[in-house]
């Protein structure tokens, strides 16, 4: 299975994501520079965490308009799975592939630490491999993770079962404790917590291994 990681200026979780993908697929992902205009042949696209463009203008705003993103949006619309983690989630909302926006944390502080998440959707292709567990522990590390959308959008996300993960203890003020959401087709997932940072006992957990292994098997 071929996967790729998009690298923006000031991405900083791109190599962690590459290790997680290689661990799950047995194949090194292609690392694609944001200035490219077309993606290589790929079965899975990952937008990594970081502070692309120094969070100028709005988190994810500049990266969302990078040359490569036109092809990412096209592939997503064609059904290729796209996973956005942290800054990657912010980029997905900025491109319109996912609704809503990630605002400054309610407490105004950068937060960093392990979070217990409820697996809110156990039917999506990204998450059904986790259906044997009600909760996963993934760490967060962000300043702008406060998920915001209008009431109608929030009601639709809940009504259509598009909330993938919820915080058990809300760390950032996110509406309805939302930590991650899916698009209607179920091939785009954005989440603020970092599954790629818990892929070995040496890193403090292995819930990320389970997430990547089952999600990539689904899409493989």
């Amino acid at each position: 299975m071929k996967s790729c990681v998009i690298v923006f200026p000031a991405s900083n979780c791109d190599r962690d994501a590459a290790v997680a993908l290689e661990q799950a697929t047995g194949q090194k992902p292609d690392m694609v520079w944001h200035g490219e205009t077309s993606l290589p042949d790929t079965d899975f696209i990952l937008l990594p965490g970081g502070f692309s463009y120094g969070d100028y203008l709005r988190s994810g705003a500049m990266a969302g308009r990078s040359p490569i993103m036109q092809d990412v949006v096209k592939k997503a619309e064609d059904g290729v799975p796209v996973l956005g983690i942290c800054n990657g989630f912010q980029v997905l909302t900025e491109t319109g592939l996912l609704p809503g926006a990630l605002m400054r944390n309610a407490g105004l502080e950068f937060i960093c630490g392990m979070q217990t998440l409820q697996v809110a959707n156990t039917q999506s292709r990204f998450t059904r491999g986790l259906s044997d567990r009600a909760f996963v522990d993934f760490p967060v590390a962000h300043h702008d993770g406060n998920y915001t959308a209008d009431q109608e959008t929030l009601n639709r996300l809940e009504g259509e079962n598009l909330v993938a993960f919820r915080y058990v203890t809300n760390p950032n003020g996110s509406s309805r404790n939302i930590a991650g959401i899916l698009n209607e087709k179920g091939n785009v997932l954005g989440l603020m917590p970092h599954p790629e940072r818990v892929i070995s006992p040496l890193l403090g957990g292995e819930d990320g291994t389970a997430f990547f292994a089952t999600a990539l098997k689904e899409f493989g």
Binding site: L57, A61, R65, E94, P99, M103, T148
Partner: peptide, 9 residues
């Protein structure tokens, strides 16, 4: 519309 503002917020 295309860059400077995010109509969501």
């Amino acid at each position: 519309k295309k860059l400077l503002a995010n109509p969501v917020m």
